[in-house]
């Protein structure tokens, strides 16, 4: 079953095409890594398929009414904005907004989801602290927990692990894998190709104004593509410890 399907998606900004003719589907139980150099349009692609900006082509998510879409897909923007010094728990509880009626207050199930998300992101101990007083990496975890609490079949996250310490980068990617194990899916943009190869079931490579490749990590990141799109070389091997991927040199 496809959770989202985009067909011939294109976005123009200020008269210039950011990308065009992007088509792919995300089914249940996938962790799809969206990779590409700066300016390739990763954020724009995610926002377009959610219907947050004007685009050409089709996206099944953007076609839905806003309230329904919010129960199908959670969105974690790259800008880690927490405007007010509200408690960590309050921020995470915002993830329940799409599930509440107009005057309905959070119930038992909402609190359980929030507690699980806090636990998952190792935030239970700081649940009462003002979110604005946490470090950047901790705030990122709070916002990931917020998106997890939304409890949607699809989670779309824009560079969620940027700025996290190595342990939390790995555990966040493992959380995404755990979501995939229970049939949910994640679309995650990232720059760390090593983590992408290890933890994603599939990679979508964006660059040169189009989608260059879509498939299993080992097949997408060929040396020729790396050289052409990123201008780097890398070492890649499937070891006993799983696939290991290490970018090496800048080629140009």
């Amino acid at each position: 079953m496809s959770l989202v399907s985009v067909t011939d998606l294109g976005v123009r900004m200020g008269g210039r095409a950011v990308f065009s003719d992007v088509s792919f589907e995300i089914g249940a139980g996938e962790v799809v890594g969206l990779i590409g150099p700066n300016g390739a349009g990763k954020t724009t692609l995610m926002r377009a398929l959610l219907g947050l900006l004007p685009f050409e082509g089709q996206s099944t998510l953007a076609a839905l009414p806003a309230a329904e879409r919010a129960r199908l897909a959670a969105w974690m923007p790259q800008s880690r904005e927490i405007a007010w010094p509200v408690s960590v728990e309050t921020v995470v509880m915002l993830g329940r907004v799409p599930h509440l009626g107009t005057l309905q207050r959070p119930g038992e199930e909402d609190r359980a989801r929030v507690a699980a998300a806090l636990e998952r992101m190792e935030l239970a101990e700081m649940r009462d602290r003002p979110a604005t007083q946490l470090s950047g990496g901790e705030q990122a975890r709070v916002l990931i927990a917020r998106a997890l609490a939304q409890d949607t079949p699809l989670l779309i996250a824009d560079e969620p692990i940027a700025g996290l310490d190595p342990a939390h980068q790995i555990s966040t990617m493992q959380s995404f894998a755990a979501l995939a194990d229970v049939g949910k899916s994640v679309l995650v943009s990232m720059h760390d190709l090593g983590l992408a190869v290890r933890h994603c079931t599939r990679l979508v490579l964006l660059g040169e104004g189009r989608m260059i490749a879509d498939g299993p990590p080992g097949e997408v990141l060929t040396p020729e593509r790396l050289a052409r799109v990123f201008g780097i070389s890398a070492w890649y091997k499937v070891t006993e410890e799983g696939p290991v991927y290490q970018p090496l040199e800048v080629l140009r």
């Binding site: 806003a66 879409r69 129960r71 969105w75 800008s79 405007a83 921020v91 915002l94 907004v97 799409p98």
Partner: peptide, 20 residues
Amino acid sequence: GRGLDALTLGEDAAQAMGID
């Protein structure tokens, strides 16, 4: 109230949470 709460996380996030 509900919309302003969601806006704590920015316009993009609020919109994606179904706030018009």
